[in-house]
Amino acid sequence: MPQSKKDELVHDHNHDGVDRRGFLKCMAWAGTGALCVMQGGVLKSYSMSRANEWNAAKMAGELSFAQISDSHMGFNKPANPDVAGTLKAAVEKINALSIQPEFLLHTGDISHLAKPEEFDTVDQILKGAVAKDVFFVPGEHDVIGDEGQQYRDRYGKGTKGEGWYSFDKKGVHFVGLVNVVNLKAGGLGNLGSEQLEWLEDDVKQLKSSTPIVVFAHIPLWSVYPEWGWGTDDSAQALSYLKKFGSVSVLNGHIHQIMQKVEGNVTFHTAMSTAFPQPQPGKADSPGPMKVPAEQLRSVLGITDVNFVRGQQALAIVDSQLA
């Protein structure tokens, strides 16, 4: 494994001086939405509170899409008794963006308990999005009880194995991976050998100049294994992407924004549209974080991603629902 890949701390949201060698990351914790722009492989991050200063022309690209995540339809506990309302707000926010995304990515935990009516409600709300195409990957909540059969019946048409797939949009190669089924006792997220073999084959013929976007529910980097926030065999998956100049990895699961730049790969996790979760290790468990009602929407959000042709980079924008 190559050592001393040059990482850069591109923005310190918390002003806490986090700047660890070899593992530098940009974090926007609950309540601090951020605009992140990656240009030439370097991620730049701006506070959403200064959105009126954005230069829309500079942000515009050939391709933009929005990421939503962890809508947890069916959740009704004090952290957020109205997850349908906050998902609707997320869709409205996307519809109002100055740059309209061509499609949506949902990075899993669509439902809370994998009940048919929960999926139905999400589908109904997403019909309100101007962008008509929605690409999904399942979260662990979407595969409860049946290892994802219902999920695949609904969202997995044309996918392989447990629901993984790839597609191309304007020269960008997207790969949706499934790391929430057949989990082993004591382990983390898991891709499995069949999916890894498929991935290796899927990207083999692509030119190294092709921008790659990989999306999966559980982070494909080790955010906090103590809470299961990582994927056991993600290193193997990433090894197949080494030849590419621009790789962006989009995940959900941890209900907060975290970013990390490692060599050619930018890792990015999205907020939840349902409820926030605590910072790694800052609570007894990763259970829902209860915040005052008036603050709730500031800790929920969407991610708007622009692809700028020529720069071979993705501009990632996180916005709060408030």
Binding site: K77, E140, A185, G186, G228
Partner: peptide, 25 residues
């Protein structure tokens, strides 16, 4: 879900390991 219960009767001796299939940690 919250407050839900699950019961199992253990009729044979042995060590039974188990986990949460959603949160395998």
């Amino acid at each position: 879900d919250t407050d839900d219960k699950f019961s199992f009767v253990f009729t044979k001796p042995g060590t039974y390991s188990y986990f949460c299939s959603i949160h395998p940690k």
